[in-house]
Design a binder for these strands. Structure first.
Lengths: 118, 118
DNA sequence: CTTTCATTTCGTTGTTCAACGAAATATAAG
DNA sequence: CTTATATTTCGTTGAACAACGAAATGAAAG
């Protein structure tokens, strides 16, 4: 079942949060599971799950159940031109955000097998 | 005095509102004063003024005092690459928004001399 | 089948935000 | 200078939102 087409303003609302922008930019490096994102952002699991649901409804990401974990992927081929263009803008301006470098480093070193014992 | 450089998320927050998106797209047709925008959006003058202040702080628009009125202009040459790209995206997707056609027609017919007697 | 564990959903709480009208400001006209 | 008018600022109110922990779900492991 497909997500209903979203209002322009709702798409921007999905992006109007620092944590969600960080998530999108981290997913550009590689797909991540909820607990990896939780670890890097330092938020409660339930909060991260909420953020991911919001981004998914807006069409920016999708999830793939992989036995134990749920992997979240960037939706690079959105058929919504607004979503597609906005994703481009966000990713190409990642380096302007001071926290991005730190997040990127953590994405590369985080190990889901070590940390997912909440 | 220049506006301080804004956080990425704050820039998106400025766009995360239906009325503000409508304003940006209307200003793409021609500069407008507060009371013209108030008339088209059907909001209180103070509310419109607030929206305009927000968009101005984020760098999307600027204002020019013109004797009786304050004209708001689209800032098409922002030196913030994020702001510049986002404006492009918003304007080029205007036709996807159902209300845009109606707003555009009103922008072309509204007469500030007739309506600015609040 | 029961336990374990990753994730989602639910209910709550404090904060942010959009809206308004009233008061303040600023500027043009009389 | 005084009035009129366009806009901004202020204070308030109700709605939306981000955060949390607890409870529910669902799937793999024992």
């Amino acid at each position: 079942m497909k997500d209903a087409k979203m209002d322009n303003a709702q798409i921007f609302k999905a992006l109007a949060d620092r944590s969600r922008l960080r998530i999108l930019r981290m997913l550009n490096i590689r797909p991540l599971c909820v607990c990896e994102i939780r670890e890097i952002l330092g938020l409660a699991t339930s909060t991260v799950s909420q953020h991911l649901a919001l981004l998914r409804h807006a069409g920016f990401i999708y999830d793939i159940k992989d036995n134990k974990w749920v992997d979240y992927h960037l939706n690079r081929q959105s058929n919504d031109t607004m979503v597609h263009s906005l994703l481009q803008v966000i990713l190409s301006n990642a380096l302007d955000d001071d926290i991005y470098k730190k997040d990127a480093a953590e994405v590369r070193t985080v190990d889901r097998n070590a940390l997912c014992r909440l």
